[in-house]
């Protein structure tokens, strides 16, 4: 849990440096997206699409040493950038920590202003999906 918050604070710090320069902020988010590891071509299928996003977002997971790894991709660079932030915060964590994570960085960096209200719904859908995956893994562990 502490790790999750440490990363969130790190992101908040980075966005503070950008200030309210929207141009730099947008380009920065897109560059972050560019740095995501390649998404396997075979997984770019309907089943892996998150519903509720305006852009197409593919999300897959696997469990490594009891920790959930997320891999994602999108057809738009801005969404890919946003999801890269979520991955940075949530990937490689225990299911329980993901489920309980309070993602305060989103509001702190003013994401609503950056992406507009329609996209904010998409972002909420991404987070929900990530937490759902965590819940599913957790129930397997508990079973």
């Amino acid at each position: 849990m502490e790790d999750i918050n440490a990363i969130q604070d790190e992101i908040i710090g980075e966005f503070e440096i950008l200030g309210d320069d929207k141009e730099s902020t947008i380009y920065y988010i897109m560059e972050l997206g560019d740095q995501l590891p390649d998404f396997p071509e075979t997984e770019r299928k309907e089943d892996n699409i998150i519903k509720g996003c305006q852009s197409k977002v593919w999300l897959i997971t696997n469990l490594q040493d009891g920790k959930i790894q997320f891999l994602a991709d999108s057809n738009t660079a801005i969404t890919k950038g946003l999801i890269s932030l979520l991955i940075r915060v949530l990937s490689g964590r225990k299911a329980k920590d993901i489920m309980n994570a309070d993602l305060y960085f989103i509001e702190k960096i003013g994401m609503g202003n950056i992406i507009g209200s329609q996209r904010s719904n998409g972002l909420a859908a991404m987070i929900k999906q990530m937490k759902m995956f965590a819940l599913a893994y957790q129930s397997k562990i508990d079973a």
Partner: peptide, 14 residues
């Protein structure tokens, strides 16, 4: 190699 929406959002930022 660029989605039209990304172009729109980058232009809006400018």
């Amino acid at each position: 190699n660029t989605h039209p929406f990304d172009v729109g959002i980058m232009l809006d930022a400018s």
